[in-house]
Design a protein around this nucleic acid. Sequence first.
DNA 1: GGCTTGTCTGACCGATCGGTCAGGGTCTGA
DNA 2: TCAGACCCTGACCGATCGGTCAGACAAGCC
Lengths: 195, 195
Amino acid sequence: MARAVSETHGEILAAAARRFAVTGYRGTSLQDIAREVGCSKATVLYHFANKEALLAELMAPAITVLTDLDDQLSGLTGAAAQEVAAVGFVDLAVRFRREIAVLRGEFPELLRQPAFACIQQISERLRDALAGHSDRPSARIIAVVLLAGISEACAEFVDVPEDDLRSALLTLVRRAVEPVGTPLPQTPMTEDKDS
Amino acid sequence: MARAVSETHGEILAAAARRFAVTGYRGTSLQDIAREVGCSKATVLYHFANKEALLAELMAPAITVLTDLDDQLSGLTGAAAQEVAAVGFVDLAVRFRREIAVLRGEFPELLRQPAFACIQQISERLRDALAGHSDRPSARIIAVVLLAGISEACAEFVDVPEDDLRSALLTLVRRAVEPVGTPLPQTPMTEDKDS
DNA sequence: GGCTTGTCTGACCGATCGGTCAGGGTCTGA
DNA sequence: TCAGACCCTGACCGATCGGTCAGACAAGCC
């Protein structure tokens, strides 16, 4: 055997991505990954310090783009922030569909790992931006529906062309999002809690 | 000790619901549930055949309502089906927020269990109905975003009053859904795949 | 008192998990 | 030729999982 280190390293990474996307992080054992690569579990742990390090390396590119988006967002408010959040997140979700599929449903526990600690804050800021920084419950609810729904849809429609997916999602977001600045539209819900 | 069977049975069920909602089905051990109740793990398995049976009993009411909705839907098409699916699913998701939180992210594996086999079919029919039975990719994508996003939002906003949540979600769905019957609106995407 | 029935438990089981470790091959450069 | 770096592995470890089982204990009936 004894291939070049970078080669095996990459093969393990690719195999892990495939398995994680199907059976999730917790649902995939190091043994599963080793079997898919055709090596021993010990080899996987020779190339990666532990299972978590494998995941972190897999997620690194997506997290970089996510933090970039957060930086862009930090100086904006109102409609501008809303637009940047919408376009930025849809683009990110479409490009990193596989990574989202890996994290799907395992957020609550994975977010406790230091490597992903930033995700929670960033996603909260994204939600705020998409809600137009409004504290109206309906605006916040809609933002959550969109962010979570887009993630799920991207993980599900892995074989739809990127452009199709992106334009469909953007159309939806622009139609669904509450326009910033409108104090209270025609739907007063039950009663607003500005007591 | 030796309480009445129904009492302990109910306590275990309630404890399981609480733990599952926080740490998920896989992430909660029978030991965790037993500790929360204040009994032994063997007691949990005295009242329930196995862990899966516990989950099944927890989900039974929600699944009943879901199948009812599916029955209502079976005879409908077009805009009527779309409306029934929207109102029915939003109502179901809001009422069974806790159950949705339990299943969150564990669908792919849980759906393989016979007790939940029906969920997959029903959710596909719901998606079709919400998409106005259109095979346009954008309509299907929007339906997935809405169904997944609503589930996630309901699991997250556990302390928002039912009525507020319901009306916000319904407003969103009515705004976001593609009206049935329109052959191709102003957004032609790249090209439609009716080859 | 005995006997049954229902409730509960500690001790145990096999399987699987992530992770460690000593050592075996192979290649390379001095 | 040979030492050392690099790649890889089988065997093993402790922890935890879902689940089993014999038996303890209390209550009710005869």
